[in-house]
Design a protein around this nucleic acid. Structure first.
Length: 618
DNA sequence: GCATAGAAAA
DNA sequence: TTTTCTA
């Protein structure tokens, strides 16, 4: 109908990318086969609890399948060899090896679970097309869907690209087998959704490429709505409430009707998915955003029991994150309450902030400071109390803890970044260290790129004063009750040729190294004597108000401090100030009260003099 | 089904 | 921020 054409024309005309989806065959069971080759020619199932979670293809011939009760499987196949797959260690080891191999071959991949990867091979194909500019002969390797003729229906060049895609997929499969003795199935298509789906057409140990113009038919031929990645039980039944049973029904459904039930965003996505349109990109798999544990058990109804469970969870969690290199800044508590009357369970969660000062880093290992465990447990129990009414009878059947909002933490708690973060409840997003050596190099570049970024905004003075730094080292809260808003500040740290308090020996100021500080606070040098110029304003002056003729110094900097600065630093600050000022005047949308009103001040902290100069917030 | 993680909706 | 959904 009309809508369908719109979709086809607007977003599915060209097929410029090539995506492969790689799925290791019967992963757990295959790893078990490798670990114990005697299992290879026998029907093999891997169990977790009372279920067979996966099995090899010999077992599948007997009707053994994924996620079936073990009892049922053994009835169908009495000679089924069952291994326990509750310990994931070996699977994780193999998963990592696969990731590393793919990383070597392609750079970034997006890993899903332990055994699936999406890889964007567009660049690799383009490289082949340009570099090997001899009229290289390409051919489809492995099965294609539906047939070669259909690939000719589009002349955007996708046929050649996909052909190379099948060659690459073939190479990956061979390599994976040579290096790790693992077989896999690969789908090759112009987007993620289709790559994943088409890869299932020839399993195991094979690959399938999809003709882009066959997308719609291919999707319509799928078994049911649930076949689409992203449509689960709930969404499928909500779609069915509209009388749409098949993917074809969804393809043909009026977008307005979908919109009424799902809203514009989800309606669009559902419709697009049904047609095989998917514009989502491959995103590199990085460190996890959350690390959590939960434990279910016989119902407990005493608070102290819960406290014990939390203790245990916290200890386990600390072991899990000790090598992470990051420190969590938030903790979430999960409670599952069983209601014996309604015979159902309800999950509830609450989270609160964690101060970085609760953690320390002892030769690379993240651990809790002395007494931090009790502090955390205390706060966890506070959240617990907000969810569980102790006056009422309660039955808790599950408790969980989950760390999140991780912050990179390469060096110990003495680092400047941590100090500032502790003091200020500030997420130090970008810090630039400045030394005499490098003053004309990386600093100005990184600074300018920051200030010039369209999203940057000048600092609101009021915000700053409310957040004012307490550098005297007075009492600090380590656990905050979820701050309303966490300020993101970019700091410019100015290193000076002077030594402070520490025992560290800095032979010469020229050793100060700018590379010790990176964007996003990934790494900090703690021993470098550093002078920070301050943001805090006592007499705020609009930075944009350049009544500048008077002197050659930025109006927001204290003259006495200015004179102490090395020439190069002065020059740099001058440039920065001018950039900032002109940005401010250029962006007419910023009301004057929002103009940054930064100036300089200095505060004594023990033996350290810290001057801070806030460049911007974001 | 449970345990874990990510994403989107509310 | 919390809940819900999905894999």
């Amino acid at each position: 109908m009309e809508q369908d054409e719109e979709f086809d024309i607007s977003s599915d005309q060209k097929h410029l990318n090539v995506i492969i989806h790689l799925d290791i065959d019967y992963f757990y069971a295959q790893v078990e086969e490798i670990l114990n080759p005697e299992l290879k020619d026998k029907p093999l199932g891997v169990k977790q609890g009372l279920n067979i979670v996966t099995c090899n293809y010999i077992a599948r011939e007997y009707g053994v399948g994924k996620w079936k009760p073990m009892k049922e499987c053994l009835e169908k196949c009495p000679e089924l060899v069952v291994v326990n797959g509750e310990d994931l260690t070996n699977y994780k080891v193999y998963s990592k090896r696969v990731s590393e191999l793919l990383h070597k071959m392609f750079g970034t991949t997006e890993r899903i679970g332990l055994d699936e990867h999406y890889i964007d091979i567009t660049k690799e194909i383009e490289r082949q097309l340009t570099e090997l500019d001899d009229v290289a002969e390409h051919q489809f390797l492995g099965p294609i869907y539906p047939d070669e003729e259909t690939f000719n229906q589009c002349n955007c060049g996708c046929k050649t690209r996909l052909m190379i895609g099948t060659e690459i997929a073939d190479r990956v499969r061979k390599r994976l087998y040579e290096d790790l003795k693992l077989t896999c199935s690969i789908g090759i298509s112009h987007n993620k959704l289709l790559a994943k789906l088409v890869g299932t057409m020839n399993k195991p140990n094979n690959q399938t490429a999809l003709a882009p113009t066959a997308s719609k038919v291919f999707m319509a031929d799928l078994k049911n709505l649930r076949s689409i990645t992203g449509i689960g039980e709930k969404t499928a039944s909500r779609i069915q409430e509209l009388g749409l049973i098949t993917i074809q029904d969804l393809q043909e459904c009026d977008i307005q009707r979908l919109q009424k039930k799902f809203g514009i965003d989800m309606a669009t996505r559902l419709k697009e998915m049904s047609l095989g349109i998917d514009m989502t990109e491959i995103k590199a798999t990085g460190k996890p955003k959350t690390v959590g544990l939960e434990d279910s058990f016989r119902p407990i109804s005493i608070r102290s029991d819960a406290a014990e469970k939390f203790q245990a969870l916290l200890s386990r969690l600390m072991i899990q994150i000790q090598d992470d290199g990051r420190v969590p800044q938030s903790i979430k508590v999960t409670v599952r309450k069983y209601d014996p009357v309604k015979k159902n369970s309800i999950r509830e969660t609450k989270q609160c902030a964690l101060a970085p000062s609760l953690f320390r880093c002892v030769d690379g290992k993240i651990q809790l400071m002395d007494g931090a465990e009790q502090k955390i447990i205390k706060n966890v129990l506070m959240l617990f109390d907000r969810m569980v009414d102790l006056k009422q009878q309660f039955n808790i059947t599950l408790l969980g803890l989950c760390f999140s909002k991780f912050q990179e933490q390469k060096k110990g708690p003495g680092s400047i970044a941590n100090y500032l973060m502790k003091k200020q409840d500030v997420e130090v997003q970008s810090i630039t260290n400045l030394s005499n050596e490098t003053i004309n190099g990386s600093l100005s570049d990184s600074f300018r790129s920051k200030t010039a970024s369209p999203s940057s905004s000048l600092m609101d003075f009021e915000t700053l004063s409310n957040n004012s730094l307490d550098l005297s080292g007075s009492s600090e809260t380590e656990l905050e009750p979820s701050p309303k808003k966490r300020k993101k500040l970019n700091l410019l740290l100015v290193a000076r040729n002077r030594r402070y308090s520490s025992n560290d020996d800095i032979a010469s100021p020229s050793k100060l190294n700018v590379s010790d500080l990176h964007l996003n606070g990934t790494s900090m040098d703690t021993s470098t004597p550093i002078r920070i110029i301050s943001p805090l304003c006592k007499n705020p002056e609009p930075i944009a108000c350049s009544s500048t003729k008077q002197t050659e110094i930025p109006p927001n900097i204290d003259r006495s401090v200015w004179q102490e600065l090395p020439l190069e630093v002065q020059r740099e600050l001058m440039m920065n100030w001018q950039t900032t000022a002109s940005n401010a005047t250029n962006s007419s949308t910023i009301p004057s009260s929002h103009h940054a009103k930064t100036r300089l001040s200095s505060t004594k902290t023990n033996n350290n003099t810290l001057h801070k100069y806030f460049v911007q917030n974001s």
